[in-house]
Design a protein around this nucleic acid. Sequence first.
DNA 1: AGGTATTCACATGAAACTATTCTCTGAGTTAGG
DNA 2: TAACTCAGAGAATAGTTTCATGTGAATACCTGT
Length: 402
Amino acid sequence: MGVELGKIFDSVMKNSLFKNKSVLQTGYSPDSIPHREKQIELVASIMAPVLRGERVSNLFIYGKTGTGKTLSVQYVKDEIMKRSKEMGIEIRMEYINCKLKKVADTEYRILAALITELGGSVPATGLPTDQVYSRFIQLIDNKKQLVILIFDEIDQAVKKISDDFLYSLTRLNSELSKAQISIIGISNDVTFLENIDPRVRSSLGEEEIVFPPYNAVQLKDILNSRCKDAFKENVVDEAVISKCAAFAAREHGDARRALDLLRIAAELAERDGKSVIDEVYIDQANNKIERDKILAIVETEPSQFQAVLYSILQLTKQRKGNEEFYTGDIFNHYQDLCGKIKIEILTQRRISDIIAEIDMLGLINANVISKGRHGRTREVKLSIPQNLMDKVEVILTESLGV
DNA sequence: AGGTATTCACATGAAACTATTCTCTGAGTTAGG
DNA sequence: TAACTCAGAGAATAGTTTCATGTGAATACCTGT
C-alpha cells in the first residue's frame, strides 16, 4: 500500500502542471492589474490627500463580481500604507468584508471586527450595541489620525441590517474630536445607492467609481498574465485561454470565474496525467464548478430547507418534469413529508420564505405569477441539471432519514 | 361585445416571540489576615 | 477585607410565528346594443 501511494505522490510531484497554483486562487494579489489602470488612478487620486493629512471624500465603488474592485482597492490601500510609513504619517485603513457570515454580517459584528482590527477586543455577544460604538470611538479618537474604512459588499450588510447603520457611520465624524474617518463602500449592486436614505446617499457617494465588466479580450490578457507565473512552460495554449475567457465573458465578465475555470481545468488535466491542458477540460471544469456548488449547498442547508427541497424534487418526479407547480402543492407535500420523517411542520408563511431563499440559491426557478381567479402564487421549477438529480436525492434522503 | 367588480391564493411586510449564548453586576460566600 | 462564586438581568442573533395588508388577472356579473 505504502509503495503504491509513494508512486502516486511521486508522479504528482513530477507531472505537476503548476509552477505556483496560488496565483490562480482567490486572494492572490498580482503585481499588475490589467485594464483597471484608469480606475486605480481614480481611486488613488481620491485617496491621495490622506498623505497630506487631510480627510478624503467618502468613496463609493460599484461593479459586478469579478471586475477587480476589491483587488484595485486593496492595491491602492497597500501603496498608500507603504507611502505613509515612509513619510511617517498616522493613517489607518481597515478592510472589512460585510458578507462573511459570522464575522461581519450584522451591525454589532462589523463594529466588533473593526475593533479587533484596530487592536481592541469586544466579546462576541452580550454587550449593547451603543457600548460597542463608544468603544470604537474611544479606540479611534485616542490620537490624531486619519482612518479610512473599506466596506466590501456593503449592500449585503445594508440588506441584512438597515441603512441607519450607514447613517451612524457617516455621522461618526461629528463625534470624533481628534481623529477623522472616511468611508469606502464597495457594492456589487449598481442600484444600491438609489434605494437608500438620501442623506446617506449624498454623504457616502461624495465620489463614485464604476468598474465595468471585462470583455473577452481583456479577460484573455488577465489570464495570460497570470499563466506566466502559474504554469510551467507550454502547458496552456492560446485556444484554451480563449475558451476560458469566452466562458467567463458570458458570465458578465467575471475574472474570478475565468481564473477558477482555468485552475480547475488544470487540476483535472493533471489528475489525468496530461502534460497539456486540453480544451475539453474547460468544459469539464465548468461542469464541476456548477456541480460542486449545488452539492455543497444541498449538503449544508438546514433540514427544513432540505425538506422543502426534497418535496420539490418529489413533485418534479411526479409531474414528469413538465408541469410547473405552486407554493400550495409544495406546502402540502412538505406537510406529508414532515409527518413521515417526524420533524416539526413550519407555517406556510415560513415555507414561502424558504422557497424564495432556495430560489436565491439558484436551485429552483420561482416566479410570482397571478392565475387570476385562482389567486397569486409562485410558479416553481427545479433547476438542478438532470445528471445531478440522483446524487442530490441521495444526499437528501440520507440527511433527512426518509 | 365590452366594461367593471370580485375573488382567489398566496405574496409581502412588520412585529413579536423563543431559545441560545454571552456579558455584566451585585449579593452572598469564603478564606486569609 | 479582598477574592471568589453564582444567579439574575439584559443583549445579540437566528429562526420562527402571528397579524396585517397587498395584489394581478381570470372570471362572474352587468349593461346597453
